[in-house]
Lab assay of single mutants.
Amino acid sequence: PDLGLTQLFADPNLIENLKKNPKTSEMMKDPQLVAKLIGYKQNPQAIGQDLFTDPRLMTIMATLMGVDL
């Protein structure tokens, strides 16, 4: 199971919303991170391994779920 990750990354406004959010806007200036996020739309399971190697993803996930870290 993808634990709902498919829906989190399926939002067509995902990148724009993250660019507008004060907690994630600075991160979204990294083209490699943006490319990763776009890739998760097609393969949400890929985030599982990346969560352990890129701490920014935890902040992004929390933001998408509405959790304040």
Rank of each mutant, 00 (worst) to 15 (best):
T53A: 11
Q42C: 07
L51R: 04
A10H: 13
V67E: 14
I60S: 00
I15W: 04
K36V: 09
N17Q: 09
T6F: 14
I60R: 00
P12V: 09
D11S: 06
N21M: 03
T24P: 00
K41P: 04
K36G: 02
F9A: 02
N21W: 04
A46S: 10
N21A: 03
L69M: 15
L57S: 01
L37E: 00
P12I: 06
K36L: 12
A46L: 13
N21K: 02
V67T: 11
D50M: 05
P55I: 13
G48I: 13
N43T: 06
Q32R: 08
I47D: 05
M58Q: 11
S25Q: 12
V34W: 02
Q42M: 10
P31V: 11
T24Y: 04
T59W: 04
T63Y: 07
L69D: 15
Y40K: 00
D2F: 08
G39A: 13
I15A: 02
P12D: 08
Q49A: 14
R56T: 05
L37K: 00
V34H: 03
P22G: 04
K23L: 11
G48Y: 15
E26G: 08
L5V: 13
V67H: 11
E26R: 03
T53C: 05
T24M: 04
T63V: 15
V67P: 15
N21R: 03
K19P: 00
I47L: 15
G39V: 08
M65C: 07
N21V: 02
K41N: 14
S25N: 15
L37P: 00
P31M: 07
P55C: 05
M58H: 13
D68W: 01
D68H: 05
L57H: 01
D54H: 02
P44L: 08
L51M: 15
G66W: 08
I47H: 09
L69V: 11
N43H: 09
I60F: 04
G48K: 12
I60H: 01
L8R: 03
L3H: 14
I38W: 04
P44F: 06
I38Q: 12
D30T: 01
P44N: 04
K19Q: 15
D54C: 02
F52I: 14
I60D: 00
M28P: 00
Q7F: 05
D54L: 01
T63M: 07
K29F: 04
D30L: 02
G4N: 15
K23V: 12
A62K: 10
G66R: 03
